[in-house]
Design a protein around this nucleic acid. Sequence first.
DNA 1: GAAGGCCTGGAA
DNA 2: TTCCAGGCCTTC
Length: 269
Amino acid sequence: MPELPEIETLVRELKLKTAGRVLSQLDIRQEAVLKTPALLLKSSLEGKSILTAGRVGKFLYLEWERGFRLWFHLGMTGQLGWTEAVQEDTHLHLVLSFEGTRERLWFRDIRKFGEVFMTEGAALPENLKRLGPDPFEISPDGFSALFRKRTGVIKNLLMNQTLLSGLGNIYVNESLHRAGIHPKRPAGRVSGSRIARLHHVIRAVLEEAISDGGSSIDDYIRSDGTRGRFQERHRVYGRAGERCRDCGTRIRRVQISGRSAFFCGHCQR
DNA sequence: GAAGGCCTGGAA
DNA sequence: TTCCAGGCCTTC
């Protein structure tokens, strides 16, 4: 599940690898995840150079000359790579070739929950305008205001991209454990000091995960095809039945709104 | 609010 | 063979 740390890892890598590269050919192997007409994509980007890469929430973009932005959302199983060898299979969607290098940028997505689209100019499309700030952008006051008087369970609110962008199931579970908050607790009933602590630990978890190159649970890989390492440091996610690293209690797993929640019933209240 | 649907590989 | 995972959207 690529979330903010995985996308940020790819942004940092692709920024270095793609800046200044001129696209010689955009090869569209299938249009399942393409939200912009194939011909428009090709005519807009071929022959143009990439300026930089960036991120908004869990969306990654490549910024091109003349104001074009090529956006990627990896869904659950999306992979964005920059390598010479490309795995040619039915899950490959896009292959971009550049002048003066044998390395190519490619997008693979097994479950096709991802999306790729292009924008022109500064205007953001609707799906991006709806996103809330990410945990690094929001102020402590803004963060605590998200939860005031809210009756929904805290885990669901944290995963709501229109309130706060960037977090998914892995980092919400990890953050709630570090903050000592039970995932089912109504958001409005978490104390102010706990909310402040939550904001702090979310940033810490994300920063640690970024420095580890993200979490490779199922399909996520870095742009060179190697795995992230943060999954080795997960305290609750995917550890049902194992012992809490703080108190030894067995980690529990329950469903909250159809999603798995992992928590320590002793450390999290 | 909660549940269903998209989609696929891998586990049960 | 059936079920499950889940980011995000749609529908109840």
